[in-house]
């Protein structure tokens, strides 16, 4: 499974939706994922890819990790996985 598909699967599970209902343009708010849901999704992503995601709930905008949309989350994860492999 690609990183993209795996991240979408995790986000879909958190949002109680089918992966097909999660688009790249969706925001977490669109999907009904609140702050606790976000923290839980990040935990699931960290576990799935064995990476550490730099995210502080107090300053999401300052984080290097962009949670603006599903696409930006996937991009961030791809980068972290690449850095991990390097």
């Amino acid at each position: 499974m690609s990183i993209k598909d795996k991240v979408i699967e995790i986000i879909a599970e958190q949002a109680v939706l089918e992966p097909s209902d999660v688009t790249l343009e969706s925001t977490l708010e669109d999907l009904g994922i609140d702050s606790l849901g976000l923290v839980e999704s990040i935990f699931a992503i960290e576990e799935a890819f064995d990476i550490s995601v730099p995210f502080n709930a107090n300053e999401p905008e300052k984080s290097e990790f962009d949670i603006a949309s599903v696409a930006s989350i996937i991009k961030g994860i791809e980068q972290l996985v690449a850095e991990q492999a390097a």
């Binding site: 923290v39 935990f43 502080n56 709930a57």
Partner: peptide
């Protein structure tokens, strides 16, 4: 795990507070 902790300092009410 909750991602609400600061790594450097507690700065209540300050705009740059981070946990």
């Amino acid at each position: 795990g909750l991602r609400v902790m600061s790594k450097d300092a507690c700065r209540p009410f300050s705009a740059n507070r981070n946990g």
